[in-house]
Design a protein around this nucleic acid. Structure first.
Lengths: 197, 197
DNA sequence: AGTCGATCCAACCAAGCAGTTGGCTAGAGG
DNA sequence: CCTCTAGCCAACTGCTTGGTTGGATCGACT
């Protein structure tokens, strides 16, 4: 694979990520991706097969990035949740890709489900360890719910704007919300750590 | 407006709701909506203007339904959250419509934002009352987060399936998850009710 | 220099799409 | 019985779309 090939591929993937994040699978336009990338669209079919497969490539690339960036920090699961929050605020495209995927596939299994399962299993394991408990279904549900809380604001910007007030974007408001989130997380973690204390 | 008209309109709205929930705004096909409704597609343009306006009609109709069905029950905010959970499990189309809308409009204001604002304001007021506190921004954020937790499982079915295990659909698992949610909610509400007790 | 394979692209294609039009039908009012 | 109007539809239109194709370009190897 000559050097140019890798470059062209990367340009296409970048353009595709932006396009898919913005418009979803159905709304994305192959022509627009090629245009943004400055590459002929035939290359897309040569490298990735078709539009849907291109989406898969984009998503799996983005998920790797997420896994790499958002790590489980030392001893504070609440900080982990806050990191997820930060990440999705900073890079909403990634969450959007996941949402488009969720809506597109619904309850049908997604391609490459196994690999994602192991990736999440690792996170769960880490999470449980830092909590000092076994990775039981209850812990899994807790983690899942916390991810939801962290992502919800970026998932539903309209609702957030309306309920939380329109100054959602101010740094100060953002910071206060982050703090609330950390507090919220600590509180809910307590229930698993000491079930009836 | 002769009786037939109302009937035709209703049939179109029903068909459109199903189609939009499944495929979103970009993915929905006007022909398919007309076919499902058993009505000529020209009627859509006569009654609703165009595809996007039809989507607005569908959404606002569905939101009214949500507001009517999910009410604030006597004295137990946790039960309210659980009701939201139940509702979205039972009728995922509605959440899907909201998600498509969120993705479609992103940070741009949505049509008819004011009306929705007042509707949410009422809910917040009720929520604060039942908590016995003032509707401060902190309470708003709490409500918002709790809605997120309640909706997250239906928002991300792939992730739920993977993290929570594939037997997501069994009634027993569903019930246990509902219970967890109630517990989770009680726990997090405590922090607002007695800030440092 | 000449051949070969890979990268790339402009132009093309058929299908699918949102939106329109012209006319048919039936019931109300005269 | 005739006319007018509102509801409805089959057929059409013009554009956009995902996907393909034939050939041009170029570096590597002989």
């Amino acid at each position: 694979m000559p050097p140019d090939t890798a470059r062209t591929r990367a340009k296409l993937l970048d353009a595709a990520r932006a396009e898919f994040a913005e418009h979803g699978i159905a709304g994305a336009r192959v022509d627009r991706i090629a245009l943004r990338a400055g590459v002929n669209k035939e290359r897309i079919y040569a490298y990735f097969g078709n539009k849907e497969q291109l989406f898969q490539h984009v998503l799996s690339e983005s998920l790797q990035e997420l896994t790499a960036v958002v790590t489980m920090p030392s001893d504070d699961p609440a900080e982990y949740v806050a990191q997820i929050y930060d990440f999705y605020i900073a890079r909403p495209e990634l969450l959007r890709l996941l949402l488009w995927e969720a809506l597109y596939y619904g309850n049908e299994p997604i391609p490459d489900e196994e690999r994602r399962a192991t990736s999440y299993a690792v996170k769960l394991q880490e999470f449980a360890e830092h909590l000092g408990v076994q990775p039981t279904p209850d812990v899994a549900q807790l983690l899942f719910s916390l991810i939801g809380v962290a992502a919800w604001q970026s998932t539903m910007p309209q609702m957030a704007r309306i309920i939380l007030g329109s100054e959602t974007e101010s740094e100060q408001a953002q910071a206060r919300r982050r703090e609330h989130l950390v507090e919220f997380t600590r509180q809910s973690i307590a229930s698993v750590k000491q079930p009836q204390a």
